[in-house]
Design a protein around this nucleic acid. Structure first.
Lengths: 306, 306
DNA sequence: CAACGGCATCACTTCAACAGATGGACCTGC
DNA sequence: GCAGGTCCATCTGTTGAAGTGATGCCGTTG
């Protein structure tokens, strides 16, 4: 088809080399192509522009015409602009500055974000982090739609087009009222709670996960209350309305406020949740994204160590 | 071979169209190419830059990434610069302004240049004319070397690579002292001057021409004096040192000063000289060159009319 | 005048761009 | 929930542009 633009960057670069050497043969060697290729390229360029660029001096090389002078000057600017653009974009992918938008699973946010944002601020003062909180679908939607560059959540579903990396493991724990008979125990078997009413954290993806843990222990849960709010569930347990199972970060949980609840390990082989960082699979990761990923890993590693 | 520049203007133009429509299919139709071509072009561009430009929304088109935003902005500038450059050069070929360098055969200059420069100044106030005077070889050399864009001389030799156009005819005339027996005549046969001493205008190309005129009339010229200067030859004739043959513009000659010489037509079938305007054959002519050519023709046409 | 330098041109080759078809992922409406 | 539609990616085959190497022409130089 007809070229949208008359000239080619290749032609222009050949022209610049010719203008430098004033000798097509020398230029062709410099460019590592045949002399004939340079000749045809320059001729085409002249034809496209409708102006001669060089005066050919037989066996004495080339002389720039006024049109050639003008083109040379402009060509330098054009290449400058293009290389600046390319380099700026490539650098933008590497540099850790500017803004990154992070999507975060709602219940993960309070345990992770305060430390994460603090640490990032400290390490990368020029980086601004925007946060989108939401449920799993919302977080992944933000990622897919480009509203967020990186997403932090549990790896509940494996979707394609998205690259996920597990950065931490979160084991489920039982939460009971401090007056509960088992509250003093460090570890319980789920069957010991078989008769207690269950308070369910009722979020799109978590729902099945928690119920499955109980079912795996051959318990038919008496779901007395349910809520989509993490804090609400804890309050209900604190009020003595039942026990619950939550995914709680061991270290962080201790500092997370709230009295009147005890956290117990589960002796059953309950499946852990994996905290995953997701980005779009297409293309290399941004420097910003890598910085966030690294910092999250750092924090989780520190939390895992005593 | 490896592309000197990672990206292509074609790719960039496809990208811009995609960024406008946010839909590769629509862009491909707008560009009149297959959708697959757009897809691969964008993918290559992303690969070259090492950055994703669009987030693909299945069945909902595209969303620009930050890198894409930046590229779009820069691409507009790049295309602006390129089209400005191309247009400026193309316009520069057409516009009659700036400077043109004109090479002129030395003996033609005093008859033609004063009128020509005056007329050009009047018609094209923004045009500056630089003049290089010299013999035929010097004028053509200036043309070939690019020092002059246009050359004005007699079409003595037909050289290739140079486009020449005959714009006027100059018949040779006899010049004699006003006291010469034939001075009153309007027309003479050369044989009538066979015994007079001849004053030769001795320039590289004119020499043979004048002598040939005499030889054609079966006269063996008695070359008493010779000079490379037109004025010198006239002075010699005015001093009565002999007769001469010169190419003289009929109309202009009358106003060209100097007494004591008479100008006679030659009844023999002596070959005229043709005034030719030459430019390099390569490429189209500049607007400036066309303006000069036209003005020269204009002046010569007026001179030919009574 | 012969050797050389330098650009243009020719015939041939190669590779990137393109067309057209297909498939997968997702959205939408019934 | 399923059928149809949208949109992008990918595959295969084709075509044209860019490149190669040889040759010729012109002009310079010693």
């Amino acid at each position: 088809m007809a070229q949208r633009f008359a000239i080619t960057l290749t032609q222009l670069s050949y022209f610049v080399e010719c203008a430098k050497t004033l000798n097509m043969t020398a230029a062709s060697q410099e460019l590592h192509i045949a002399q004939s290729a340079v000749s045809t390229a320059i001729n085409q360029l002249e034809k496209s522009l409708g102006a001669p660029l060089f005066v050919r001096q037989h066996s004495k090389g080339l002389v720039l015409t006024p049109a050639g002078e003008e083109l040379l000057q402009q060509a330098r600017q054009i290449f400058g602009l293009i290389t600046d653009t390319v380099e700026s974009i490539q650098a933008g992918q590497k540099e850790v500055r500017g803004t990154i938008t992070l999507a975060c699973f709602k219940t993960l946010a309070p345990f992770l974000l305060p430390q994460l944002l603090g640490r990032l601020q400290e390490k990368y003062p020029e980086l601004t982090v925007d946060v989108i909180e939401g449920d799993h679908e919302e977080a992944m939607g933000a990622l897919r739609s480009g509203r967020a560059e990186i997403a932090l959540n549990y790896d509940l579903t494996e979707t394609d087009g998205i690259h996920s990396e597990v950065v931490g493991e979160v084991r489920p724990h039982v939460i009971v009222h401090t007056d509960h008979p088992l509250a003093r125990r460090r570890k319980v078997a789920l069957v010991e709670l078989a008769d207690d009413p269950f308070v369910l954290l009722d979020l799109p993806d978590s729902r099945e996960y928690f119920l499955n843990i109980l079912r795996a222990a051959a318990i038919t849960p008496r779901v007395k209350y349910r809520s989509a709010g993490y804090e609400t569930v804890r309050s209900m347990v604190a009020m003595g309305l039942g026990f619950s199972i939550l995914n709680q970060r061991p270290r962080i949980s201790q500092t997370y406020t709230g009295a009147r609840t005890a956290i117990l390990e589960i002796s059953d082989p309950a499946p852990s949740l994996h905290v995953a960082i997701s980005t779009l699979a297409r293309g290399a990761q941004t420097g910003k994204a890598r910085a966030v990923t690294a910092t999250v890993k750092e924090i989780l590693a520190e939390a895992a160590q005593p």
